[in-house]
Amino acid sequence: MPIDMYKTQRYYHHKDFRKHSHFHAGKGVATEGKKRGAREIKIVRKVLDVNDAIAQQNRDMFAEKDVFVVNVMSSPGSGKTAILEKTLSHIMQDVRSAVIVGDICTSNDADRLAVSGAPVVQVNTDAFGGDCHLAAHVIKTAVDNFNLDEIDLLIIENLGNLVCPAEFDMGENLRVVVLSVTEGEDKPLKYPLMFRVCHAALLNKIDLLPHLDYDRNAAVQNIHKVNPQMPIFEISAKTEEGFDSWIEWLMQKIHG
């Protein structure tokens, strides 16, 4: 019984006052006195400032080389790779594109995207339960594989995860979140940070709508509750329905 176990652990933890280091925020922890002889040293530093500093270096490098960078994020299985395959086939004529693909393991997505002719670099965070997101230093290293003078657009396909990637700036210009109609309509409410930090949402797999009970109005409303001004493109990576407006919007952003 997992719930009982959880309670038991908590109870045990409370009894073990010598290791009294658990979470009591809002219940007086902040007012506890310092231990005898302790000296408080103010730091006030962002835990992720190392990542943020590298992200800024990336951003400066991309600006210098005139490369527009898009970070695409979603939960697993929402169709990121299929969308990028089709997107590349639309824009490769006009925009010199490259892709960095993040996965915990395998190079399957990179193999699919390489068919487009774009240079593709696969980043595997770890073959056995590795990192759940791409971070700025990973991009900085991966970019060494490209000649940035020959690239106008760099697309980063992040790991399938709606939580952590939202927290890690990589120096990108644009963040796009993909949501598919086979997921819950309430995903934006469950992962608000992701829908706050992104500039647009792609609602994918709309070709499946006739076969589903999906309430797309509810999904759109939920996205707009979290981010009222977010553009939403309803698309199908299978039939390419809705791609014209998505590509047009993307091209506008690239050409600024």
Binding site: K35, G37, I41, K42, V44, K46
Partner: peptide, 10 residues
């Protein structure tokens, strides 16, 4: 996600 301070004992 900020570290505010540490308390150090010599």
């Amino acid at each position: 996600l900020d570290i505010i301070s540490i308390e150090v004992v010599d």
